[in-house]
Design a protein around this nucleic acid. Sequence first.
DNA 1: AGTCTTGTTCGACT
DNA 2: CAGTCGAACAAGAC
Length: 270
Amino acid sequence: MPELPEVESTVKRIEPDLVGRSIKDLWIGWSRSIYGMPRSTFLKRVAGSRIKSVSRRAKYIWIEFECAEHLFIHLRMSGNLLVKPPSYQAGPHDRLIARLSNKRQLVFQDTRKFGRWKLVRNPHEITGALGVEPLGKDFNSRTLTEILDSRSGAIKPLLLNQSVIAGIGNIYADEALWKSQIHPLTNCNLVPEKNRKQLVRAIKSTLKRAIELQGTDFGDDVITEGGDYRPRAYGREGLKCFRCSDSIQRILVAQRSSHFCPSCQERRSR
DNA sequence: AGTCTTGTTCGACT
DNA sequence: CAGTCGAACAAGAC
């Protein structure tokens, strides 16, 4: 399940193969992977235009063309992007393949078909809806405090709200809360001062560490490959907490499974 | 064969 | 407006 670290890793991996190339043709295995336009329109709009940059904003891969078109790719649950040699033949989970000017192929694999490619002229159409970048300078204990004090609900759904903080998903939300010892149901405005500083540090360090390790690997996930990050809380229901050896619990918070240690993540709410 | 799980977005509702 | 809830998306595990 690609979140910010997996997206960042993907960008770093494919960027060198893409910059300076253009898209010559597009093979479509699942047309709904392209958001809101037919292949012909997509090709017409980027025809002959070289890729200027490949970057990341939140969980989006952002490909900018010299013709000032912007392609935003969201991997959702099972998406992955790979650059393959000219001889590569489409596999069963390949949904889109862009043939590049150097004959290599940008392959979009997506078992569950939730991922999307969206081409826009105005990048603000996508980025305008996104909150602060958690690894950026303007995410710090002062800005987090402003956010927390203006909210009444539980902390966990806030961390997942992309219009507030953009890029954290279910895995790293649980990880950051475990690290800063905050119960997922704690009301935002009741998070103690000292835990707020810890939370900012926990979010940044967890995301950075996961980027270094190229994300999290789940044996049961078909596509998401590689990563060496090992969760402390997420997916560890019934296993021992690495801090206090109590048993990690799983509960539903805003319909999302949330993993935490009942002993060292004290609940402050109600 | 049916149920459950998974992350995100969106619309309906309180 | 803030927040919750359910639906929808699709496939795989059991």
